[in-house]
Design a binder for these strands. Structure first.
Length: 264
DNA sequence: TCTTTATGGTGAG
DNA sequence: TCACCCTAAAGAT
């Protein structure tokens, strides 16, 4: 159940283990048997993340596209494959298995172009001209900003934890129409998004609470209980003002916020 | 040993 | 907006 930072982390870590080595590829579960047979024996040149999508670029020119969806997960391939292992990749000294992905497919160039064309800017990739585009896309939309942040066409990589936490950090009520935000607010939100996802990518953990607010000196010191401001904290007191955190829904996904601190 | 939930996304209507 | 896909862990019984 990953957000963009996790996928970028996977790309980085898996690259170390798998790139440049001949791989034995199979699909113990069978649902990716054809694709696995096509890739078997090949070499990966590069692994990249775009938002929540992973692309494995093979020397053959094939591109393996993986999206974990809500249930997908990677494990070491050390253990014997589980019933549900869709994809198993083994090099001479590393292995990786994938279960439950919403997507595991080999893309042709058109397929890759189509995928990338429906993704907005990724906070973890350096891209030019993004800020102006973002300001424009917020200005154009009257939907609640809490909904817009989950729209992968607007920003690729934010998930349900970060959207709630980023809005708390910005002091913005999730139901506020996106177009009512000022340009400076949109840019500040984007800036904070990039910073927070970067922190998450490095640590492998979402910690949005500023450590000093909890009397700690680093994010790492914060426990799982302390690391988030609002996500999953309905009924509990806001860390800043004590007001009960509210749970609501936007676009059929639960959202949490502090009605007092998030006054914008 | 059940039922529920989860950091996601698509396609039909 | 809704149903549905897919899997595993947590929670309820």
């Amino acid at each position: 159940m990953p957000e963009g930072h996790t996928l970028h982390r996977y790309a980085r870590l898996q690259s170390k283990a798998l790139v440049g080595k001949p791989l034995e590829v199979s699909s113990p579960q069978g649902r990716f048997a054809q694709g696995a047979a096509r890739l078997d024996g090949g070499v990966i040149e590069k692994i990249e993340a775009y938002g929540k999508h992973l692309l494995y670029r093979w020397a053959s020119g094939d591109v393996l596209h993986v999206h974990l969806g809500l249930y997908g997960r990677f494990r070491s391939g050390d253990q014997p494959p589980f019933e549900n292992t869709r994809l198993l990749m083994i090099s001479d000294n590393d292995s990786l298995q994938l279960s439950g992905p919403s997507t595991c497919e080999v893309l042709d160039p058109e397929g890759e172009a189509a995928l990338l064309s429906r993704l907005g800017p990724d906070p973890l990739r350096a891209e030019n001209g993004v800020r102006r585009k973002l300001v424009a896309s917020f200005a154009r939309r009257s939907t609640p900003v809490g909904g817009l942040l989950l729209d992968q066409k607007v920003i690729a990589g934010i998930g349900n934890v970060y959207r709630a936490e980023l809005l708390f950090r910005a002091g913005i009520n999730p139901f506020m129409p996106a177009c009512d935000l000022g340009e400076d607010e949109v840019l500040a939100l984007w800036q904070d998004t990039r910073q927070q996802l970067r922190l998450g990518e490095r640590s492998g953990r979402i910690v949005t609470v500023e450590p000093e607010e909890m009397g700690a000196s680093s994010r790492r010191e914060l426990s799982d209980e302390e690391r988030l401001y609002v996500y999953h904290r309905e009924g509990l007191g806001c860390r800043r003002c004590g007001t009960a955190i509210v749970r609501n829904q936007i676009a059929q996904r639960a959202i949490w916020f502090c009605p007092k601190c998030q006054h914008r």
